[in-house]
Structure formats: C-alpha cells, structure tokens
Design a protein around this nucleic acid. Structure first.
Lengths: 215, 215
DNA sequence: GCACAATGCGAATATGCCTCACTTTGGGCT
DNA sequence: AGCCCAAAGTGAGGCATATTCGCATTGTGC
C-alpha cells in the first residue's frame, strides 16, 4: 500500500511527522477503542483517554481538533482495515459464484465485530458520523460502491447505477441485521447472522440480471 | 385508552400530578423535538431546551433525572404514538392480504418521519437507547412482537417464535432502509422506500408458511 | 382560609472539553 | 560534535454545559 490511505489524513488537525508521534497517535486510537468497549461511547472522557494512552491531554489536542475527531479517526482506521481485508481476500481467492464473494464480504464484516476492539460499538460511523468519506453519501454507500467495483473487476459484473443501487440496499440491510445479531449475542446470534446472509443472497438474486447485463 | 401508557412513566424522576405540570412536561418534550430538528441531538443543551419550553432549568430536573432522559421520554412518546396509530388502523381497516397490513405498518412509520418533529433524528431510540421498553430486547424487537400480535388477531396468523423471529428480521431491515431513504432525501427517497417494501414483502413471502401454519 | 404537597425557580456547583504559554526532543546541517 | 528550529509534549486554567438545592409560589383537600 504505497498510496496514502484515507485514514492517515482524515479528521486530523495536524499530521504526525516523526516516528514517535505516529506511534502515539496510534496509541491514542487504541486507547479509544479499548475505552469504547469498556465504558461505552457516552462515558468516554478525554481525560480517561489521555490516561489510558499514557499521554498528556495536551498531546491529544496536538493532533485531534476535538473529541469527536478521535472517534472519527478510529472509525476511519477500521473502515480502511475492512477495505484492506476485502481487497486481499478478493485478490487471493477466486469465487465460483458472485454470492460467494458477497458472503465473504459479510464474513469479513462479522469477523471485525469479533476481533477489532470498539468495532461492535462504532461500526462504520453509527454514533459519530455517517459522512466520514464523502459529504454527500453515507459511509455504507461508499462501501457498496467499492464492493461493486470488486464485483465488476473480479466477477465481470456490469458496472452501472443499478448495480450500485442494489448493493446500496443490500449493504444497508445486511449492516442492520448484523448489528442486531451482535446486540442479541456478544458473539453474534448465529440464527440472525444466517438469516441475514440468506436475505441478502435472495435479494441480490432477484437483481442478478442487473448484475450480469449492462443497464 | 384508559390504561396508563408506558410513556407516561418511562424514565421520569417524578410523575407530574397537577394539570399544569403535565402540560409543562409535554411542552418540554415538544421543545426537545423542535430543537432536535433545528440544531441536532449533539448541539441540544438543557438551557436551550428550558428557554424554548418557557421553563426554568430547575423545572426540567423536577421531572427528568438528566438530559438523556428527556430524549428517552420523547422517544417513548413517539413509540406510543406509532403503536396507537397502528392499533387504530388495524381496527378500522380490514386487509385482504397479510402484506397489505405489513405495507400499512411501513406507511405509518414513513408518515411519522414526515409529520412528527424530531422523529427523523430519533426514530425508535437510535441515539439514546435501544432498550427503552425492555432491558433484554431492543425496541424494534418489541415493535415486531406487537406487530405479530396484530397479525395474529386480525389476520389469523399463527403466533409462535418463528413468526416473531421473521418479523424481528423484517422490522430491523425495513427500519434501516427507511432511515437510509430519509438520509438521502428529506421527504424519503421514493426509490429506496419502494425497494424497502418490496424487499420486506418478498422476505416475508418466503416465510408465509410459517405465518399461516402453526410451528 | 388553613395546611401541606406539588410545583417553580435560578444562583451556585460539578464536570468535562479544550487552549495556550512554555519546555523538551529530533534530526538536518555544518 | 554542536547549533538551530520545527515537531512534539505538557498540564494548569478558562470556559461551557449539566445538575443540584434551598427557598418561593401555587394548587387542592378539608
């Protein structure tokens, strides 16, 4: 990844230049993730964050304009990580059917809920900001477009507004159901997760013509 | 409605007894709704709220334990209103097919987005609390159960966990898509709204056996 | 019209976000 | 090695906002 990822700029007041400060900013984000898991977003205080990161409060504001921006930056880091994972998976694996690719995308999202601290609370911007990546479109819409791109590149789907629309709907519904699954069960209610996948597959199946024919 | 509705207790510190205070509490909730629309939930301050309601700040805390509780109470009032509307509609109208009833439920939800101040921001607890009605289950899950009850009573659907589960999924997905529609367009993106209804109808259609046969 | 509970009030306090003036450190340069 | 300046680090204090509390006012049953 030689190109600068979106999360390294994001909502930062000033970009850390020296190695120590880069590491520090990461520590702050890590602390933020931990604390969101421990006390929740509401109870997160800047003092607590600074203590946990082993940093003076002033240092936090050296790089972040305000509290919200810290959480935004964390969300962006997670968003990047997801797209990264997805990119790798599509590059390595070759899918027999388009729905295997969709299933993989869902699986990666589920995995992040289990593995990434704070993710089950923040997701892709729930609490803080649904317009981190683009002023016009929701984060999920962007995700859907990226997904569309991957499907076009790796499975020969026909790019176009109808594919984007269908994926936008699918991503939004899947997102909601997966969140539900993790609210019902810390490890993700298996019944709900299975149903989510089934629902998405059947929905997209009805749009399979849209996917394989040019609009 | 002779029974005391849930929203009249809710997260109140003390229940208003005299007429003037009942009206005042309503004014506070109205002010809260207006302000949430005008400045957003984040920028809502207690001072602003008190001013808008024409009430001293101390009076607010006479009935509400904290700021969050105000928004919770408003959300509860909206939740009640929705169930009320739905109850009336099911009582007056007789549906030819179960999906007409489902469509009506969705339409009422959409109507509230357009009519009720603050609703497009708060929905049924997004920002404040998804467990207003029940410590265990999400607000949407409760809605789904009520909906199941209506379908059982008015259309002879077979009550049971499978109906509850399917409706839980349907409500969650529909909710997410309708929110999306209203984020894309203040009046609700028609394409997204139509697609939401279609998706839900088709999903429930595949569970129609579950609806009409006893599990 | 008395007595007490309910209600109303807002200055004072508590808490938490964020700034700023100052110190320390890193690394490019000679 | 030593100099210099930008980058980074610091934390007491200013400021905005949430919440309390002691006292004033009003409603209601008797």
């Amino acid at each position: 990844m030689t190109t600068q990822s979106v999360s390294s700029v994001g909502p930062l007041r000033r970009v850390p230049v020296q190695g120590r400060s880069v590491a520090r900013v990461q520590r702050m984000l890590d602390a933020c993730a931990e604390l969101v898991d421990e006390v929740g977003y509401e109870a997160l205080t800047t003092t607590l964050l600074a203590e946990r990161a082993g940093v003076a409060i002033g240092s936090v504001y050296q790089f972040f304009p305000d509290k919200r921006a810290i959480v935004q930056a964390l969300t962006l880091r997670n968003l990047d990580a997801y797209l990264q994972r997805l990119g790798s998976r599509f590059a390595e694996q070759s899918f027999g059917h388009w729905w295997e690719a969709v299933d993989s995308s869902i699986d990666e999202y589920i995995a992040m809920h289990r593995e990434i601290p704070g993710f089950r609370t923040l997701h892709f911007g729930d609490v803080v900001d649904v317009h981190l990546l683009d002023a016009e479109r929701d984060n999920n819409t962007i995700i859907a477009e990226r997904l569309a791109g991957l499907l076009v590149d790796h499975l020969g789907a026909a790019a176009g507004p109808r594919l984007d629309f269908a994926l936008g709907i699918a991503v939004e519904a899947a997102d909601a159901l997966i969140k539900l699954a993790f609210r019902r069960d810390p490890e993700g209610d298996p019944a709900v997760l299975a149903e989510a996948k089934a629902l998405i597959r059947e929905y997209l199946h009805r749009h399979v013509n849209t996917i394989t024919e040019r609009s």
